[in-house]
């Protein structure tokens, strides 16, 4: 009996390392987590109901909700959820390391046998698990959409995978700033600043640059030059990537600006869908952010041995 016990123990300790276990326990014991969950569900629930109410009012008389409308509502809820994630992820992660530094518990943790990687990754995983839990808790809201049809479970699954990936990205940026900056305040501000740039800044830049490029090709008088490259700007934008998941035409539209002059899209297909490019770019950024965070949790001690 002792043998099996030890074995289970070993497996458990391999899956849930001490830092992860601690993060789970402490997070679930704080009242703040409860409130976060509550307000998140309240926000998304209210927005979904509000949307229903407004559309019902406008489609006067018609009682039925057709699949097209339900699809639009699905897209609406999905964007609301993405917005909430963008709002939540930096806040949940930007304090995880600097918070321990400020509470003066970090030094104690750093003198244990836990590796920097296990500390950073455990904290990331625990924040992500909490966010995943919250997003899963919004499932009932989607049942409204399913009631009316127009959306397949597969699409819903894709959207949730996309959410989790976005959380991972925003979360790893948050952790990176949390390790780089001593103060949580600064880390939180920078994390939200970056998030704002990714959501708003890239879209804004895209619009500005496309305007300028259009002006330039028009004034040069010749055939519109191919400036489809500016579409890559939008590949940084989680919102645009999410939309391209619903509407494959989106990618072509984004990359083929010259359609404006001819009035029709050119026939070529973009090499990658916007969301695929998004996945690739952000995978690289996530790896870079996590590795940098791991390297900077502890002071670089062995610079001398490297020089030698």
């Amino acid at each position: 009996m002792k043998g099996t016990n030890g074995c289970a123990d070993k497996w458990r300790s391999r899956l849930i390392n001490p830092v992860l276990g601690k993060e789970f326990t402490l997070r679930m014991r704080t009242v703040r987590s409860m409130w976060a969950l509550f307000f998140y569900l309240l926000a998304i629930g209210l927005l979904a109901l509000g949307y229903l109410y407004v559309t019902r009012m406008s489609s006067s008389g018609a009682n039925a909700f057709n699949p097209d409308e339900s699809r639009i509502m699905f897209i609406f809820i999905s964007f609301v959820q993405l917005g909430l994630i963008a709002f939540m992820a930096p806040g949940l992660t930007a304090g995880v390391i600097s918070g321990e530094r400020e509470k003066q518990t970090l030094n104690l943790l750093l003198t244990t046998q836990q590796s920097s990687a296990s500390i950073v990754i455990s904290k990331l995983v625990s924040s992500l698990s909490f966010m995943a839990l919250i997003t899963l808790a919004t499932m009932p809201v989607y049942s409204i959409v399913f009631l009316f049809g127009g959306i397949s479970p597969g699409q819903l699954g894709m959207v949730f995978l996309f959410y989790w990936f976005t959380m991972l990205a925003l979360g790893s940026f948050g952790i990176l700033f949390s390790t780089l900056f001593k103060r949580t305040m600064l880390a939180v501000i920078v994390a939200y600043g970056i998030t704002l740039f990714l959501f708003g800044g890239t879209a804004f830049l895209y619009l500005i640059v496309s305007q300028i490029m259009e002006e330039m090709t028009r004034s040069s008088g010749g055939a519109p030059g191919d400036f489809g490259w500016i579409g890559h700007l939008l590949a940084l934008n989680p919102g645009a990537a999410l939309y391209s998941l619903f509407d494959p035409e989106m990618t072509r539209w984004v990359f083929r600006m010259n359609m404006g002059s001819g009035g029709s899209l050119s026939t070529g297909q973009p090499a990658l869908q916007l969301w695929q490019e998004f996945l690739i770019i952000y995978s690289i950024l996530i790896i870079a952010a996590v590795l940098t965070a791991i390297r900077s949790v502890r002071p670089r001690l062995n610079k001398k041995s490297k020089r030698a």
Binding site: T105, L108, T112, L301
Partner: peptide, 25 residues
């Protein structure tokens, strides 16, 4: 301490001048 920090950490018990605790534990 700079080359084998992990070994060193095994050997020492360190109590800083200022430290925090996890209140919820």
């Amino acid at each position: 301490v700079t080359r084998h920090p992990k070994q060193v950490r095994k050997l020492i018990g360190y109590m800083p001048d200022f430290f925090g605790v996890y209140d919820q534990f």
